[in-house]
């Protein structure tokens, strides 16, 4: 193909136009008129970052539902999680018995304290997440920092991820959740009916330099940090304490650890 002078001028003209448009949008950003999506993800000065976010829950420090309640309330309030009774409920953070939480750790003659305790349950943000593997639209995906996220605008509501999750961490909006939010947090989006949701390790708070809501409310009973950094506080705690993960034999490699 021969490049004529006319073709060259055409390409040059279009390129110049594009550059002008780019400069224009950059100008608009400086005025705060439009913030492209990636701006939220680029590490700002307050943005907390990690190679792989993880959580250690010190189950010894929780003595009953009253110890868990502030954490669950903080999470569900922050994220506009609806309060729906019954088997079509939506929950991000909740508790259950040892037997229900660790079904692959059936112990005969379990220590009384362990047997009667409740355990905090949430998305495990697996290093090898089956939910991400099965999702047909990439509506659920794993971020660079290990957090398993949901794009609720892309989710088609097929619920394959709910079948795929070994931890029952996912909830489906069987109905419009908005009438069931007692007090709406205007900073965080509400969901529509027909999409799946779950804990996000508070990505929106990490972006502002804050710890996840449950970690903050736990007053030190939960430690959140970088599993990928051998010198992090969380790695020191893991080195010093015996911990369990839920169903480790499935190869999903959960990022939530429990000190028993």
């Amino acid at each position: 193909m021969k490049t004529t002078r006319r073709d060259f001028l055409k390409v040059a003209g279009v390129t110049a136009l594009g550059m002008a448009a780019g400069a224009g949008s950059a100008l608009a950003n400086s005025k705060g008129a439009y913030l492209p999506h990636y701006e939220h993800m680029a590490p700002g000065h307050q943005h907390l970052t990690a190679k792989r976010w993880g959580m250690v829950i010190d189950t010894r420090a929780f003595h009953g539902e009253e110890d868990f309640a502030p954490l669950i309330e903080a999470c569900h309030k922050e994220h506009n999680v609806p309060h729906l009774p019954g088997k079509q409920e939506v929950k991000w953070l909740w508790t259950d018995s040892f037997h229900a939480s660790f079904p692959h750790n059936h112990q005969e003659f379990l220590a009384e304290r362990v047997h009667h305790s409740r355990y905090l349950l949430l998305c495990n943000h697996c290093d090898n997440p089956p939910c991400v593997r099965v999702c047909p639209t990439k509506a659920t995906f794993k971020r660079e920092d290990g957090i398993v996220m949901m794009d609720m605008h892309r989710c088609i509501g097929c619920r394959f991820c709910m079948a795929g999750c070994p931890y029952g961490s996912r909830s489906f909006n069987f109905q419009d959740p908005r009438p069931f939010i007692a007090e709406e947090n205007p900073v965080y989006p509400t969901r529509m009916k027909g999409v799946v949701e779950k804990c996000t390790f508070c990505t929106e708070r990490l972006a502002e330099g804050k710890m996840p809501a449950c970690v903050e409310a736990s007053e030190g009973k939960i430690v959140f940090g970088d599993l990928g950094d051998p010198d992090s506080e969380i790695r020191h705690i893991l080195a010093e304490n015996f911990t369990l993960r839920r169903k480790p034999d499935l190869g999903t490699s959960p990022s939530v650890f429990y000190i028993i």
Partner: peptide, 11 residues
């Protein structure tokens, strides 16, 4: 069976 059938084409 889809929760959001309008988004079917996302597949």
């Amino acid at each position: 069976d889809l929760g959001q059938p309008k988004r079917l084409m996302n597949v």
